[in-house]
Design a binder for these strands. Structure first.
Length: 121
DNA sequence: GACCTGACGCCCC
DNA sequence: AGGGGCGCCAGGT
């Protein structure tokens, strides 16, 4: 068999994909951060960009989605511009005890949380 | 309807 | 080891 093909987003309803991303994002423990790639990898759907695309619609979902806990692989707060203010993301993370320096999560490797760590699904 | 960009990340040079 | 290119999928121009 060839390499297992990652399921395309087209194979599922986009709304379902949205829900999945939101769900996983909401499971990120306070004080921890996750990455777009980790979520995409866990869902085995689309790509990291899709996660960002989905989170871009989180403003539609009134629910309190801790999108500020999702950063890129480098730990950079790449999505800060999409919040109410460019500093909200940093402020929220700092409020949770996450140290931020120059828009980058300090000790990213330590604080990184992979959905795989979820004991119960 | 084609092209480019985007809250990314891996592979290749 | 650092930088650049390509893939990913959807939306906007």
């Amino acid at each position: 068999m060839t390499t297992e093909k990652r399921t395309s987003v087209k194979d599922v309803k986009n709304d379902h994909y949205f829900q999945k991303v939101f769900d996983v994002t909401c499971m990120i423990p306070p004080g921890r951060v996750s990455t777009y790639g980790a979520i995409a990898d866990f869902l085995a759907l689309g790509s990291a960009r899709m996660v960002g695309w989905a989170l871009n619609n989180c403003h539609s979902a009134d629910s309190q989605i801790p999108a500020h806990r999702v950063v890129n692989r480098k730990g950079e707060l790449s999505g800060r511009r999409h919040f109410s203010t460019p500093t909200i993301m940093e402020e929220k993370l700092k409020n949770e005890g996450v140290e931020i320096q120059d828009n980058v999560v300090v000790h990213m490797q330590e604080l990184f949380w992979h959905p795989r760590e979820m004991k119960e699904y």
